[in-house]
Nucleic acid binder design. Structure first.
Lengths: 404, 404
DNA sequence: ATCTTAACTCAAAAGATTTGAATTAAGTAT
DNA sequence: ATACTTAATTCAAATCTTTTGAGTTAAGAT
C-alpha cells in the first residue's frame, strides 16, 4: 500500500553521474564552443568532474574538440562543441490511417524518413511495422541510435471525447503501456508523448522556440492541440491529457462538436475547420481526404490570390484565437506562444499578422525581448520529428527520474 | 556568456543524500507508519541506506518509531511515523495594508499567529517587521524552525496590470530578490511564492488536495487567482506570473477592468465583485473596507435567508465560472479543481453546487474516483498558512534544485 | 524442534565528486 | 629576453554516500 501514486525514487552515484552528464552535454549543446572550466563554473561541478565527463562524451563522439579560444590571459581553454553526427534518434507518429517515421541526427537533420499507410491501427500491427521500419532505418546509419520517440494523438481514457473524435486509436491503453511494448518491439528505449507536446519539444530543441524555457505551442493538426513546456519540462497533466485546447468553448451556442459541447475552438480554428469552410463555398471537393495536404495546397493558392472566402476564414479564426492566446499567456506566463503544425507557413504567418492580442496580459512586460507570438516549423512530418526530438531532449536535458 | 537563462546545476553526493532524505521523509509523511524495508522497496534505495537515513531523521525528531506491525511471516518491521511536532515553519503573507503571520508545526497546526497593520508596504519596513515577528514566534516554540514562506500578491513586472490593480506592492523587485533579502533579515531559509500557489501547496500538504499530484486551485482573494500544482511541483511560469486567471475574458464587451480589457472573470466572480453587487443593492455599505471580513459576514447572513440578490449573484458567478473550470480541466488535465480562499465555506459550497460543468472535458473519465470540483480550506489566514506549507513541502518533497 | 521468510545491522567495497598541488600555456610588464 | 600573472588542465589522494554480502533477530509454518 504505497502512499503515492507517482513513486518518487531515491538516487545514487550512477544516477548522479547520468544527471551530471546531461548537464554537461546540455550546456555544450546550447553553447557554441565551451571550455571545461566554463562548464564547471556554470554547473557548480568541479573542473575535474567536468573533465571526466567531457572525456567520456568525447569517447562517445557526442562532443568534439573545436580548437582553443584566444584572448584574455591564462591558458586558452580547449573548446568543445556538440557533435550532431555522433548519434541518431528515431521518431514515429501514429495516426489512424498512417505511420510517419523519421531518423534524424542530433541536430534534427533528417537522415531517413517514411510514410506508411496503416491497414489497421491496433498496437500489434503498428509495433510490428515499427520494428520493421526501425530495422530499415538503422541499416542506413552507422552511428548508434539513442532511442525512439513515439507520438500518439490524445486524449486517452476520456468518456465522450475519445469515443467521438475522428483521430482516435483503439486498443491503446496509455503512455506507460505503449512505451513498454514499443521498447520491447524495437529493442530501444522509447518515450511516448502526444503530438502537440512532441512538436513543442521539437520546436524547443531545433526550431523557433530554441532557448525558451517556458512556452506554449499551438499545434495545427486535424484539430488543434496545445503543448506546454514549463521550466524546460513538458507538462503532461494527471493522465497525459493536458493541452486539449481544441475543446475550449469560444462561441456560446456555436457549432456542434464531436465532444458534445457547442462552439469549440477546434470547429473554427483548425485545418478541419478550414477544409469545411472552403468545401462549403465550393472551393474544395467535400471528399478531400482529411489527412492529405490538398487542403494546404488549395489554401496556399487562395492565399496568393487574396481570395475573399479564405480572407473571411482567417479573420474569424484570428478573432477567436486572439483571446485564447491571451488566456494562455495569463495562465501559463510563457516567454512566447508558438504556432506551428500542419498548415502552410504563409497561412500561419498571415493568421499571426491578423491577431489582435489583448492588452491586459501578463505578457506585456517592459523587459520583453521577443514577439508574443512566433511561427514554428510546419509540415507533415512535424509530429514525427518531435518524436525524434524527444529522444534528443532526453539525452541532453537533466531531470529527476521517476522510479522504473 | 552562459547559454541558458535557467542555470541547471550538477549534483553531487551531498545533494544525493539531501534528495534521498526527502524521499524517505516524504514517504513516511504520506504513509501512516512504514517500515524500513517497505521504504527501500518503494524508493529503490537499499535497506541499509534507508536505515541510515531513518536513524538521522529519528535523531532530528522528524520521524518517531510507532511499534511493530504484526501479521505475515518474518520479523515484523519497526514502523516509523512522521512527527509533526518535531519542527516548525513560519508563513508570512504580505498585503498592501497588512502583514499576516503564522507559525505552524509540520502538520499545519497553528502554534502562533499575528495580523499586523502595515504603515507602509516597502520592502525595508516589511522585512524589519517580519524579523521582529519571527523573533516573537521563535520565542514561543522549542523546536527548530525550518524556514519561512513569504507570500506576495502578483503579478510582477507587467505593464498595465501591475499599475492598476488594488492589491499591488511597490518597490518589490521579484521573487529571487525578495527571497534573498528576507533570508538575510530572518536568518532563515526563505521561499517566496504568490498567494494562490502558496495556498494550493497548503491545500496539497494539509487540506482538501492531500494526495493529489496534479490539480488546479482557484483562490478567492480580493480578486481571483489560480495556483497550479503539476506533478507535485508548483507551476510558476517564465516570470512567476502563471495563474492570472482573473483576467480571462468571459463576457465580450462586459464590465471594464483595471487591466484595460472588459469582461474579465474577476469582475464577476470574486469577493470584490460580490461586494460591489451587494453594495449596489443597498445590502452593504459602499465604504466597507476591501480587506475585511465584513463582506463575508453579510454574505453568510444573506445566504442563510436565501436572499434573492445573493442568489442572482451566485447564479451569475457559477454560470461564468463553469466553462472556465472546463477550460482548466482541458488545459491542465488535473485530478481535481479546488476552490478556496477568503470566502465563507458555505458560500463556496453553494457556488460549487450551482456549477453546471461542461460535458466535453478530459475530466470525464471512467476511472474517476473523486468529484471534479472540491472545496478547500478557507479563511483569512489561508495565504499565510500556505507560506508555512511551502516550507514543509520543501523539506518533504524531493526535487531537482536549480543552481544557488 | 526445525525450517522458512522477512527485517534489520555491521563492516568492507565500490562509485562518484571534491580537494589541493603541480603542470601547461598564453599574455603582460619589466 | 626574462619574470610575473592569469587561467585551464591534469594527477593523486581524500571524502561522501550508497551498495554489497554476511550475519543476527524475530515470528509464523511445518
Amino acid at each position: 500500500m504505497p502512499p503515492r501514486q507517482t513513486q518518487i525514487a531515491g538516487t545514487n552515484a550512477e544516477r548522479t553521474k547520468a544527471h551530471n552528464r546531461r548537464v554537461v552535454l546540455g550546456y555544450v549543446q546550447l553553447s557554441d564552443g565551451a571550455g571545461r572550466a566554463e562548464i564547471a563554473r556554470s554547473s557548480g561541478l568541479s573542473t575535474q568532474t567536468v573533465s571526466n565527463l567531457i572525456a567520456e562524451l568525447e569517447h562517445d563522439r557526442l562532443v568534439v574538440p573545436a580548437g582553443r579560444r584566444r584572448s584574455a590571459r591564462g591558458q586558452p581553454p580547449v573548446l568543445y562543441t556538440f557533435n550532431p553526427a555522433g548519434a541518431a534518434a528515431l521518431g514515429f507518429e501514429v495516426r489512424p490511417d498512417a505511420l510517419l517515421s523519421v531518423l534524424t541526427d542530433l541536430a534534427g537533420t533528417v537522415l531517413w524518413q517514411a510514410q506508411t499507410p496503416l491497414p489497421a491501427s491496433d498496437p500489434e500491427t503498428v509495433f510490428a511495422l515499427m520494428a520493421d521500419l526501425a530495422g530499415q532505418a538503422r541499416a542506413q546509419c552507422e552511428v548508434p541510435v539513442l532511442g525512439a520517440g513515439l507520438v500518439l494523438p490524445g486524449p486517452f481514457g476520456v468518456e465522450g471525447l475519445s469515443a467521438a473524435g475522428a483521430t482516435v486509436l483503439t486498443g491503446w491503453q496509455g503512455f506507460d503501456d505503449a512505451a513498454a511494448q514499443a521498447a520491447e518491439a524495437l529493442k530501444l528505449p522509447v518515450i511516448v508523448e502526444k503530438d502537440a507536446t512532441a512538436a513543442a519539444i521539437g520546436e524547443a530543441m531545433l526550431g523557433a522556440a530554441q532557448g525558451l524555457d517556458t512556452f506554449c505551442y499551438l499545434y495545427f493538426g486535424a484539430g488543434l492541440g496545445l503543448g506546454v513546456i514549463a521550466q524546460g519540462q513538458p507538462m503532461r497533466g494527471a493522465f497525459g491529457n493536458a493541452g486539449e485546447i481544441g475543446h475550449v468553448i469560444v462561441v456560446p451556442d456555436g457549432l456542434p462538436c464531436d465532444c458534445g459541447n457547442t462552439g469549440c475552438l477546434e470547429q473554427y480554428t483548425s485545418r478541419m475547420a478550414l477544409r469545411r469552410h472552403l468545401a462549403a463555398r465550393g472551393l474544395l471537393s467535400p471528399d478531400t481526404p482529411p489527412g492529405g495536404g490538398q487542403t494546404d495546397a488549395v489554401a496556399a493558392r487562395l492565399l496568393a490570390v487574396e481570395d475573399a472566402a479564405l480572407d473571411a476564414w482567417l479573420n474569424e479564426a484570428a478573432r477567436l484565437l486572439a483571446p485564447v492566446i491571451g488566456t494562455l499567456e495569463n495562465l501559463f506566463d510563457p516567454e512566447a506562444v508558438v504556432l506551428g503544425g500542419a498548415l502552410p507557413d504563409r497561412l500561419l504567418d498571415d493568421l499571426i499578422a491578423r491577431l489582435d492580442l489583448p492588452r491586459g496580459s501578463v505578457a506585456r512586460r517592459r523587459d520583453r525581448a521577443r514577439p508574443r507570438v512566433l511561427r514554428g516549423a510546419s509540415g507533415r512530418m512535424t509530429g514525427a520529428l518531435g518524436g525524434a526530438a524527444l529522444v534528443i531532449h532526453d539525452t541532453v536535458t537533466p531531470r529527476l527520474d521517476p522510479a522504473p
